[in-house]
């Protein structure tokens, strides 16, 4: 919301400070998430990453996305992750990486490629038809409330895609139940 008063391209000091603060927290947490041996600690570092991402979304005036990030990822998915980790009692034991050197090299190469892509994208100019004027989102939120800009297109223009996605999720749930049932029967018999 502060951004709209500033000339294009410059940002207030506080904004820059917070951007780097949350950016650094996100990256450090992500690194810790990958390197921790204990699955519970790794999961918690991932939660921390989600939080800093949510903060970055809020700084982009996308409060709705930020809150959904916390609600869905940190509040629901990661809790279920923890639940499963505890149920399987992976505990503090060290789970060794079963994959060999080849896989690690491939993973590293993919990571480097993605990093290069991000650098290339930040260097190039964003096409004009993909950008919004500065402070546009903030004005929109001020005028219609925080979720109307998302809910409107979602339930009018893209309703079909939205519904198809829900059918996809339903299919996944049914599939999971079917698989679970099959194994249960095998065990019993």
């Amino acid at each position: 919301m502060v951004v709209q008063d500033m000339p294009h391209g410059t940002l207030p000091l506080l904004y820059t400070f917070h951007f780097y603060l949350f950016g650094i927290i996100a990256i450090v947490s992500a690194l810790l998430f990958v390197t921790r041996k204990s699955p519970v600690a790794a999961a918690l570092w991932l939660v921390n990453t989600m939080f800093s991402l949510a903060a970055l979304y809020v700084m982009l005036d996308a409060q709705f996305i930020g809150v959904i990030q916390v609600l869905v990822y940190a509040g629901a998915i990661m809790v279920v992750f923890l639940f499963v980790i505890m149920l399987l009692n992976l505990g503090q034991g060290v789970v060794g990486d079963a994959r060999g050197l080849g896989w690690k090299l491939i993973a590293g190469a993919v990571g480097v490629a993605l990093l290069a892509q991000i650098f290339a994208l930040t260097r190039s100019r964003t096409p004009v038809n993909l950008t919004l004027p500065a402070g546009y989102t903030a004005q929109q939120v001020e005028r219609t409330g925080a979720i109307t800009p998302i809910a409107g297109p979602l339930f009018n223009e893209y309703l079909l895609a939205f519904e198809v996605t829900s059918v996809l999720l339903l299919a996944a749930i049914v599939g999971a139940v079917v698989l679970g049932k099959q194994r249960g029967e095998g065990d019993a018999g």
Binding site: Q63, F64, V67, I68, L71, A74, V141, G145, A146
Partner: peptide, 11 residues
Amino acid sequence: MPIGFLFILAI
């Protein structure tokens, strides 16, 4: 906040 209620749910 404009998303006060969702914030409560998230927290």
